[in-house]
Structures are given as C-alpha cells and as structure tokens.
Design a protein around this nucleic acid. Sequence first.
DNA 1: ATGGGGTTTAACCAATTGGTTAATATTGCG
DNA 2: CGCAATATTAACCAATTGGTTAAACCCCAT
Lengths: 202, 202
Amino acid sequence: MAAEKETATEQRILDAARSVFLRKGMMGTRMQEVADEAGINKALLHYYFRDKQRLFEEVFCVCGKHGMQGVWEELTHDRPLFGNIRAFVAAFHTAIEREPLFPHFLLSELQRDPQHLLKLVDLGKGAREHFFGQVMEAQQRGEIIPIDPRQLMVNIMAWCQFPHVAAPIIKHVGGMDQKTFKQFLNERSTLVAELIIRSIRA
Amino acid sequence: MAAEKETATEQRILDAARSVFLRKGMMGTRMQEVADEAGINKALLHYYFRDKQRLFEEVFCVCGKHGMQGVWEELTHDRPLFGNIRAFVAAFHTAIEREPLFPHFLLSELQRDPQHLLKLVDLGKGAREHFFGQVMEAQQRGEIIPIDPRQLMVNIMAWCQFPHVAAPIIKHVGGMDQKTFKQFLNERSTLVAELIIRSIRA
DNA sequence: ATGGGGTTTAACCAATTGGTTAATATTGCG
DNA sequence: CGCAATATTAACCAATTGGTTAAACCCCAT
C-alpha cells in the first residue's frame, strides 16, 4: 500500500544514511554514496529529505534519541548513589553495544555543528540534576569525598565513551583483535563503576 | 636569504594548514582556505607540499610529535608508580594547553585514516611498557588492586583527553563560560591523578 | 479507460574542488 | 650585470558534488 511503500523507501534512505554518516561524518559523506547504499536514485534523497543537511539532522536526531534511550533514567531511580552509578554504566555499555560508532560520530561532529548535539544532551538534563543532587547529599553524609559533581559526571562519561572513540588506538596499543577488544569492553561494563566508586568513596 | 625565505613560506603554509585542519579535519578543509589563511596563492600549496594528503600528513606528523613531546617520558622516570602517574597527568595537561584542539582532531581523524595516528602512538611504546611493568610490580607488592595495566592506561588517557574532546558539551551541561571551563580543566590537572590513584590503591 | 496524485528515473546544472600549467618575478652567485 | 634556479602568480582544467528538472511510471478511484 502507498503508506507502507513510502515508509519503506524513507527507511531505506535513513538506514543507509545512518551507516555512511556514522562512518564518514557529514563532510566525508557523499549523497551518491548514500543513494548507492540504499539502492535508490540519488534524486530521491532530495525528494524525501530535501537536502543533505536535513537528512543529516534526521539521522542525528534518531540516532541520538535511540542511542541514549533509557540510559539517563538509570540515574534517577530511587536507590543509593553507588547503585545508580552502577546501573548507569551498565546501561551505557548496553546502549553503545547497539551502535559502537555512535560516540565517535557524536564527538567528531561536535566542533563542526555543536547545536544539534547540545540539544540531544539536554534530553538528560533532569537525570543529571537528580544525580548532582545525590552527589551533594552523599558528600554531606560523608559517604564520598568532596568533589564537584560535574567533575564526577565527566569522569563517568569519559570512561564510558573514550574506549569507543579511541578504539583503533586501544586495539593497536593493547595488541588486541576485535574479539579480545570486545572482552576488554565487557570487562569495563562493571569495572568502570567499581573504580569510579573507589575513586570517590570516603 | 634564500634558505630563510623558503622556510618562511613553508612555515606559513604549515601554520595555516595546522589551524584549519585542526578545526575542520581533513575532509572539511579546503585548499583555498588554507591558502587564504596563509596569505598565499593556492598553487603554492602544491608547489611545496604536492597535494592535500601530503600537506595533511606533514601537519599531522609535526603536531603529533610536538604535542606529546616529553609527556610519555614522564612515565619512565625512576620513581614510584604513583609519582609517575602524577607527573604524566600534569605533563599531559600542559601539553594540551598548548593546543587544546589536538585531542579532538586526532580522535576525529582516527576512523578515516588510522595508520598515521597509530604511528604516532608508537612513539610512546617504550614508556608504556615501562609503565605496564611498574603496574604489575605494584600489584605483586600489594600496593594496588589487581587490574589489567591496559585498563589503567585507558582510564588515565580517558580522563586526560575526554574533557577536551567533549569540551562544548561539558561547557553547555556545566553552564560554563570559557574562563570557568579553563578553571575546571586546571582543577583536573591534579584531581585526575589523585582520583586514579584512589581508584587503584589497595 | 481515464485522470490525478505520488513515486521514481535519467539527464542535466552550476558551483566547487584539488590540482596543473606557463608565464613572470625574485634571488643569489659568478 | 647576466644567468640559472627557485618562488610566485593567474588562469585554466577535469572531476566531483549537491541539487534540479521534466518525463515516465505506478497505483487507485471513478
């Protein structure tokens, strides 16, 4: 039917665009390449998405929302700070497993076009505020050392994202094939939280 | 004199290319733009550096060597592990202050062209091996928890580099202007080492 | 069968891009 | 000063790129 047929072509374009944008970024991606990967005529990209920028924004938006779906919420559960940290790191790990190129893509595009990324980041604002509150309370109760909650947030995000952003370096330096690297990352899914907690526990 | 004059134009090109490549990456940089910034005719880029790829590699090479000059060596001094970690982090902080865009540039280019970056990373190989040895010894002496030295290396690099790679996000999320962000980074120049040490101390 | 709306195609377009070329200018040395 | 080598310039080039256009195609309702 017409409605399904329309969705199919749009979806094919979005899937192909996602694949190419994630690998090559906005500036490195050619529209013909996206069309080739979608198996369509290049003019259809413009018919459905008007121009490259809009296609990119759509992909960016969909990736960003799906990529972090349910992850920020792990920081807002009614449980102790350390439990929230563990759950958040594990959820982050699971999310990135679905799309390992996503952190690199996001951070790569950051200089060129910060606005869209910053909008995406705002989706987790409430969760971070809750987390910051928990961090301050834990300090007041003497459970953790004095630390700016923002520094702690950066530390968590750094350990969750950096290995994916720097994956080729880490593999090379650590002498790992893809399978070993995957194990290395799996180890981190619990190690990161434990080391974060050790770094701040009073 | 001819030798100096030659160096002057080459240097102007390299400086301009560095500035543009760092901001826009290889794919986003246009040769005319580099020429404009250097204040020269575009054909000179090809006269001196033959093509875009070679210019890029030259810039990459110079940046990479200067960027980490003296930093890896801080891991090899004859002093305890924790001292080496502190010195390394402080040296890293100083190095990045000289060129804040460098980590983002390096990691952005990583997917597109891993080879050159990996060559650069190999410059620190000896230092890392020394460091790994120290980590293993510290474990055997019971000074630190059992941990794969590679995980520890990744953790250190992550905390040193990520705030620069993700700078626009961190400023936005933390509600910081450039001055405040700079203070935030300065705080990390000692905080990072202390938290790393806390995370592994037995 | 016909008409209308939506989808797809192939050809085309203007601008941009990295690179080339030949002429000119500059420099340094004998 | 003259000459040769090097540096610089402006014009030019072929290919690529994102985007446009008009025709053809498809499907459905009357």
